[in-house]
Simulated assay, not measured.
Amino acid sequence: MKILLLLFTIIIPVIMLYLDRRIDKAHNFFNLFAVISFLIFSIIASTSIYQIIADGDVFMTTIHGLFLNEVFLLTGAYVGVFTIYRLLKLTLEES
């Protein structure tokens, strides 16, 4: 499973870069989806932290329950993959 995660972290940004070069408006979709993903990711994180503070929980394991939220994980994964894609794109444009 760890190997698959590593491979997908490399392969998906390369596919995104390929689609960006082949389809004119692909970068618009990638950017929009990244903004939406980042907003959802941030809202889930902030509301979870607020709830912990409001409840007065002091256990570190309480915040780790956030990692059980599938939407949080999916949006965070896309933000990570998108960041690698943008870095690849920037590197290729500068060279």
Rank of each mutant, 00 (worst) to 15 (best):
residue 27 H to A: 08
residue 64 H to Q: 15
residue 46 S to H: 08
residue 1 M to S: 11
residue 30 F to N: 03
residue 49 I to P: 15
residue 38 F to E: 01
residue 88 L to F: 04
residue 92 L to M: 06
residue 66 L to A: 05
residue 11 I to K: 03
residue 77 A to F: 01
residue 8 F to D: 14
residue 94 E to T: 13
residue 95 S to R: 14
residue 49 I to H: 15
residue 91 T to L: 15
residue 11 I to V: 10
residue 25 K to G: 11
residue 30 F to T: 00
residue 19 L to I: 14
residue 95 S to E: 10
residue 66 L to G: 10
residue 29 F to L: 05
residue 53 I to D: 13
residue 76 G to K: 05
residue 44 I to S: 01
residue 88 L to V: 08
residue 27 H to S: 14
residue 25 K to S: 04
residue 39 L to Q: 01
residue 23 I to F: 14
residue 65 G to R: 00
residue 17 L to C: 09
residue 41 F to R: 12
residue 90 L to G: 05
residue 2 K to A: 15
residue 9 T to D: 02
residue 27 H to Y: 07
residue 48 S to P: 06
residue 18 Y to P: 03
residue 79 V to Q: 10
residue 82 F to P: 02
residue 67 F to N: 06
residue 74 L to S: 07
residue 30 F to Y: 01
residue 9 T to P: 03
residue 22 R to Y: 12
residue 69 N to D: 10
residue 92 L to W: 06
residue 79 V to E: 02
residue 56 G to Q: 03
residue 13 P to R: 03
residue 11 I to Y: 03
residue 90 L to M: 07
residue 74 L to W: 05
residue 93 E to N: 11
residue 54 A to K: 15
residue 43 I to G: 00
residue 1 M to K: 15
residue 24 D to T: 14
residue 33 F to T: 04
residue 72 F to L: 01
residue 47 T to I: 05
residue 22 R to I: 15
residue 95 S to A: 09
residue 8 F to R: 02
residue 26 A to I: 06
residue 56 G to I: 01
residue 90 L to Q: 05
residue 86 R to C: 08
residue 51 Q to M: 07
residue 78 Y to E: 00
residue 37 S to D: 00
residue 63 I to A: 09
residue 84 I to Q: 10
residue 61 T to E: 01
residue 64 H to S: 13
residue 54 A to Q: 04
residue 47 T to P: 08
residue 93 E to R: 05
residue 6 L to N: 06
residue 28 N to P: 12
residue 39 L to F: 04
residue 54 A to G: 11
residue 68 L to T: 09
residue 86 R to H: 10
residue 14 V to I: 11
residue 53 I to H: 08
residue 18 Y to T: 03
residue 3 I to K: 05
residue 36 I to S: 04
residue 36 I to A: 10
residue 30 F to L: 01
residue 23 I to E: 12
residue 85 Y to L: 04
residue 94 E to S: 05
residue 10 I to E: 03
residue 77 A to D: 05
residue 25 K to A: 08
residue 23 I to V: 12
residue 15 I to V: 08
residue 49 I to N: 12
residue 93 E to H: 04
residue 7 L to T: 06
residue 53 I to T: 13
residue 85 Y to D: 07
residue 39 L to W: 04
residue 11 I to P: 08
residue 75 T to C: 03
residue 33 F to I: 02
residue 13 P to S: 12
residue 86 R to S: 11
residue 66 L to R: 06
residue 44 I to G: 07
residue 5 L to T: 07
residue 36 I to K: 07
residue 55 D to Q: 08
residue 6 L to C: 03
residue 64 H to L: 13
residue 28 N to F: 05
